[in-house]
Computed example of a mutant assay.
Amino acid sequence: MSGPVEAAIRAQIPLGTRLPTPTDRATFVVHEMDASGLVLLFGPKETPTTFSWACLEGITGFLRERGWIRIGANRDVRGDETALDGYLKRHVKRQTANYVAVVLERAGLVELDSEPPARVRLRQQ
């Protein structure tokens, strides 16, 4: 049984979709969705990175009651716990927050402000 984040991503983003990062400096591909999670392809080598549905479903709880928060993508493997990057690095030790923020926006789950410092907030339902 899928949660609301999984259902929104599946409904709004077809496999093979190429999306821009918030800064428009790079693109990535929504490669695969299965029972275990979502696979995105990053960079020129299209390196696969998997996000479990549990990780992605947890983002709405992380964002709830916080208003706008920085995406905060950086290469520090610990991340900033007050930013989306810090939440994601609990699950995937890579710089992924920019990509995930765009997926969530395209799925209609968050609002994305790409002006530096880029930030997101849960979309008002």
Rank of each mutant, 00 (worst) to 15 (best):
S2Y: 08
S2I: 04
E6Q: 15
A7M: 10
A7R: 13
I9G: 15
P14V: 04
L15G: 12
L15K: 03
G16W: 08
G16Y: 09
G16K: 07
G16P: 03
T17N: 04
L19V: 14
P22W: 05
D24R: 05
R25M: 05
A26V: 04
A26K: 09
T27M: 12
T27P: 02
F28S: 03
V29E: 15
V30K: 07
V30N: 07
E32G: 08
D34Q: 10
G37E: 11
L38M: 11
L40R: 08
L40M: 11
L41C: 10
F42N: 09
F42D: 12
G43H: 10
K45V: 03
T47E: 03
T47L: 00
P48S: 01
P48M: 00
T49D: 07
F51T: 02
F51Q: 07
F51E: 07
W53T: 07
C55L: 02
L56F: 03
G58V: 05
T60D: 12
F62W: 15
R66I: 12
W68F: 10
R70G: 13
R70I: 13
R70S: 10
I71E: 03
G72T: 15
D76E: 13
D76T: 10
D80M: 02
A83P: 00
A83S: 11
D85Y: 00
G86V: 15
G86L: 11
L88C: 03
L88M: 04
R90I: 04
H91R: 09
H91V: 00
H91N: 14
V92D: 08
K93Q: 14
K93H: 11
K93P: 12
K93E: 14
K93Y: 05
K93N: 10
R94Q: 09
R94I: 07
T96A: 03
T96V: 05
Y99H: 12
V100K: 02
V102N: 01
V102S: 05
V103K: 01
E105I: 15
A107P: 00
A107H: 01
D113M: 01
S114G: 02
S114T: 05
S114D: 08
P116F: 02
P117Q: 02
A118R: 02
V120F: 00
L122G: 09
R123W: 01
Q124L: 05
